[in-house]
Write a protein that binds this DNA or RNA. Structure first.
Lengths: 200, 200
DNA sequence: GTCTATATCTTGATAGAC
DNA sequence: GTCTATCAAGATATAGAC
């Protein structure tokens, strides 16, 4: 899975490095995580990181952002699309997110949020990567809302606000070590979707 | 202003250090900012930082969080309380926030958000400080909404969601280098307040 | 209280044996 | 491809002259 052809013999050290990076970044942030910590957590020798990522920390960071972004796009789709009722789906998704938050012991349920804040004004390449990921999520969610009868532009605005609500609620919830802000945001998100369905 | 009695003779190096820390933290984050950078930006000798903050970076970080938290509590109050119409006030506040975002060239308009994400799982003292600040903002905004006729608990939930919406919109806007997510979130926030006023 | 010099540790990254 | 040793530069923090 790491390249075009996979013989099945590779232990895939590279994937373990990406996974370890994802887990550390969401707890300690991008600048707060060292390459040595990642190597150790991945059970990989230090030099292997630079073998697979000659571009160093920035290249690894970008791969972490883009791959976890794609994974979460699929997760959200799988979670919500079974629902016909867009309002109920939105509320339930926030309830599930609240569970995830406490299961992670208040590490960031969003794998790219902390990194996105850190790099927005400091690293143009990584900033663009986080922007692309957020865009893909908004597009996916907008398509789902549009399928429920919300006009295209309104659907995209609704999706943008719902994701903003979720990310902001994660921030408040992590700070307070409480799931309450996320559950409360779920009610607000449902109200936003309801208003959009009613045509503002 | 730095201690109990102020003779007026002090040049107040301490305040310049706190200001420089605030500005750097919102652009480069907590771990991404060095003590040397702060000293240089403050125009203060390096040793002065440890003179005023014997507790080092963590003590400075806490002071930055709590003081800028108090400042922003006052700002928001001054911005919104003149309005009688809670829905219009909320929408206009987001429009003003969008302006600030672009004026800052997409640095974080919220002085503690990036830091809050970084420290939530890594530094209990600083995490508590960010939690206290968010709480104070929610309390202040909740009182304003309650003054408009929203019942106590609903007012606090509304305030929590509005702040989540704002923080999340800042995140999306910074990543995209666009004010659109903030303006869009303003409409959603107005809808949330409107729903609360209508009694859900 | 101001400021410089420095100690100590950790970072990202590289070289090169195997 | 794997792994170790090491580099140069950065970090936080401290000591001590003034």
């Amino acid at each position: 899975m790491s390249k075009g052809k996979d013989t099945g013999t590779t232990p895939d050290t590279k994937q373990r490095i990406v996974t370890a990076g994802t887990e550390l970044f969401r707890r300690r942030g991008y600048t707060g995580t060292g390459m040595k910590q990642i190597a150790e957590a991945a059970g990989a020798p230090f030099g292997s990181i630079y073998h697979f990522f000659p571009g160093g920390k920035a290249q690894l960071g970008e791969e972490v952002i883009r791959t976890s972004g794609a994974v979460y796009l699929g997760l959200v789709a799988a979670l919500m699309e079974p629902y016909e009722d867009r309002v109920a789906a939105t509320g339930d998704a926030f309830a599930a997110a609240a569970d995830t938050l406490s299961e992670l012991d208040f590490a960031d349920p969003c794998p790219i949020a902390t990194v996105a804040m850190e790099v927005a004004s400091t690293n143009e390449t990584l900033r663009q990567a986080t922007s692309d990921v957020f865009d893909s999520w908004i597009d996916g969610l907008a398509a789902y809302y549009a399928g429920g009868g919300i006009p295209q532009t309104a659907a995209r605005e609704t999706a943008s606000s719902v994701i903003a609500l979720l990310e902001g609620a994660f921030m408040l919830g992590r700070a307070a070590r409480s799931t309450a802000p996320v559950l409360t945001a779920g009610k607000a998100a449902a109200a936003v979707v309801r208003a959009a369905l009613a045509g503002e």
